[in-house]
Design a protein around this nucleic acid. Structure first.
Lengths: 225, 225
DNA sequence: GGGATTATTTATCATTTGCTAAATTAATTT
DNA sequence: AAATTAATTTAGCAAATGATAAATAATCCC
């Protein structure tokens, strides 16, 4: 693969080539990447129903060029999903969460620091919420993914560290109590980055306090029938 | 105000009046209400960018009639917001939350049972999320409203019941720890009613377990610097 | 019952939408 | 330097959009 670097940055923002200006041409891979990147920002800001013409203006190209690289708008949106969601999950995180040589508190703080570093930005947050409202399977998939990779894992770690003697698979009660915590963390990001509402703690402080609250509160609540 | 009851239910769903069918006429108030009600359901399902023509079909009327009652589409959307958000808050809830003759646990369970009864349905949830993504001030307003009416109030009640000796106004740390809980409850509704993902507990059980988790976990976590 | 009122429809317009085909021109090859 | 390739633009279409004006017909009132 040639993978030419994006050295030729479009020198002038323009809709149409004006006389005397030299038109810049990119390789298909580069151009495709430029389009997806800008589309991600653009759709995150104004929603997927926004037109392709303003997007072309932001790219400094004409609108039909977009359809040269994406046969239709839905394909472009799909490319945006891939860009935002896929290949952001780190398998090391699963190892980290199960590393019993360290206190669970430390592990959780480190994990959520890294995890929120990926998803706590307006681009990710808004694309996620927009996708969910489009009735996409993607969000269902993502929620189930989190449940398998994070929630069940941590629930077992909590049992281990707190010496809870429930046997068998993780209960619905445990899962939902962990969701209460995880959803609470997530909603912090929604308020801050999707809605732009001021919050009252720095992220780091918030994560630490939340983890403490979880580890103090959940075990007893999980034990009851 | 005449407030005629909506006794004449449109007998036939149709786009245009067919020969031999008797056209049904409503009073302006009734028709307006019919339109807002259906628009709420419709927009909740497909988003605010959906066209007015399919809405008219669902109403069994022609599209221009919508614009007889709402000068433009934005006004219709505004009417939907009013229908969904305004006048759903019960002042009794604020009294309930402060009634120290009852255990805080009972009060919180009763409050969240009543509160979620209002907001845990796909109509409310999806309109709320859609509105937020449109950059509306409404969501910021709503979040601040919840903070004033619910969070600060409960934080003080927790201090009282748990004998926490922090003086002065509610701290950012306390507020955010309560947000962790409240946001977690809220996200339960998002998963269930906005995304339609299966959850692992009945609502009642979930609320009870969550309140227990909050009351066990938050006080200690709130005390640290 | 007949005329006045007005809820509703018919017909239509100006934009905007996603998308296509053909013309252009920058880059690559010979 | 000429010929070829292909990235990009120009021009435009068909459908859908929000909105308006005039025609129709159901209801109200005397």
């Amino acid at each position: 693969m040639k993978q030419r670097t994006l050295n030729k940055i479009s020198p002038v923002k323009r809709t149409s080539t004006k006389k005397g200006e030299q038109r810049v041409r990119f390789s298909p891979e580069d151009r495709k990447k430029l389009i997806v990147d800008e589309a991600t920002r653009y759709f995150a800001e104004v929603g997927f129903d926004a037109g392709t013409r303003p997007l072309a203006v932001r790219l400094g190209i004409t609108q039909p060029l977009i359809f040269r690289y994406f046969p239709n708008k839905d394909d472009l949106i799909q490319a945006v999903y891939n860009e935002v969601f896929l290949s952001r999950w780190r398998i090391e995180w699963e190892v980290l969460l199960e590393d019993r040589s360290r206190p669970l508190r430390d592990r959780l703080i480190e994990f959520y620091t890294a995890y929120t570093d990926v998803i706590f930005n307006s681009k990710w947050m808004r694309i996620f919420l927009l996708a969910g409202l489009r009735g996409l399977e993607l969000n269902k998939w993502y929620i189930k993914f989190a449940e398998e990779r994070i929630h069940r894992r941590v629930c077992i770690e909590i049992r281990a560290e707190k010496g809870i003697k429930i046997k068998g698979p993780v209960t619905g009660r445990e899962l939902e109590l962990y969701w209460l915590f995880h959803g609470g963390i997530f909603y912090f990001g929604v308020r801050r980055f999707a809605y732009g509402v001021p919050v009252h703690l720095e992220l780091r402080e918030f994560i630490e306090a939340s983890v403490d609250s979880l580890l103090n509160g959940m075990p007893a609540a999980a034990r009851r029938p």
